[in-house]
Amino acid sequence: MMQVRFDSLRKLGSINSTFLMIAKTRTGLIGISSVSSIVFLSIIIGVISPYNPIKGNLAEALRAPSLSHPFGTDELGRDLFTRTFYGARTSLLISFLGAGLGAGLGTILGLLAGYMGGAIDYILMRISDALLSIPSILIAIALVATLGPSMNNIVIAIAFGLIPAYMRLTRGIVVQVKNLEYVIAAKLLGLSSMRIMFRHVLPNISYLSISQFTLDLGGAILMASGLGFLGLGIQPPYPELGTMIGTAKMYVGLAPYLIFFPGIVLLILALGFNLLGNTIRDVMDPSSRVMMK
């Protein structure tokens, strides 16, 4: 059972001090620097790279890493360095949107269930039980396989797997919060349920979902690239890290760098998000901060 201590709750207003606390820890620093360097490269890749990520030069196909092609070139003669960071951009986008959608919907549904109680609570929680009882990869595969591998569907597929966890997390805390004085006071003032939920309760509990969100980003990026690897993600020729590795797998003996570099970037991203997520949870959640010592 989770206990909330509102006196020591770190409000979102102090983003600066939160950031400082994250940067102070060793793991937090590694997480921030690895994630931000890849994010930075994937943003400026269009500026720093002279190559087109989609159109290649077949005469240049399957070149080993060199000065002009630091990661080598792929089977269609495209520069792998360029494609890797365009691909990272896609992977990042999908996982942010997927995890964000899952966190947002899950939090709102959990808020409704916890605050409204009764039949709404019962139905929503049974839906969450049902979703939790199916492995998320199967839900995602079933969704993408039937609806088709578009960007929207992949994002929905990732979100689906995350919704129930946020529902439980939020509901658990809302059930405690709704009996606190400030909520009761708001009720006595005659404020509408909607207003109380979204203006008074939500801001006070969102820190939980936010720290869980960063923890889930690493998992979401692995899920997105996993779907891509299976051929159920972003379709070629558009670059996405998992899709790139999936199409390169037949060249494992011939051109292993086609697999190695996108994979390393993926590993660093997932690792960075996990370290960052762990640190943010420790910083934001007073009870786990004690355990850190």
């Binding site: 797998k249 697999i259 993926l266 590993l267």
Partner: peptide
């Protein structure tokens, strides 16, 4: 623990094959 959680399974598999 950290690396295992962040490891893309398919990539690890291909690296082991390699």
């Amino acid at each position: 623990t950290s690396i295992g959680t962040a490891m893309p399974t398919f990539w690890l598999g291909l690296m082991l094959i390699l």
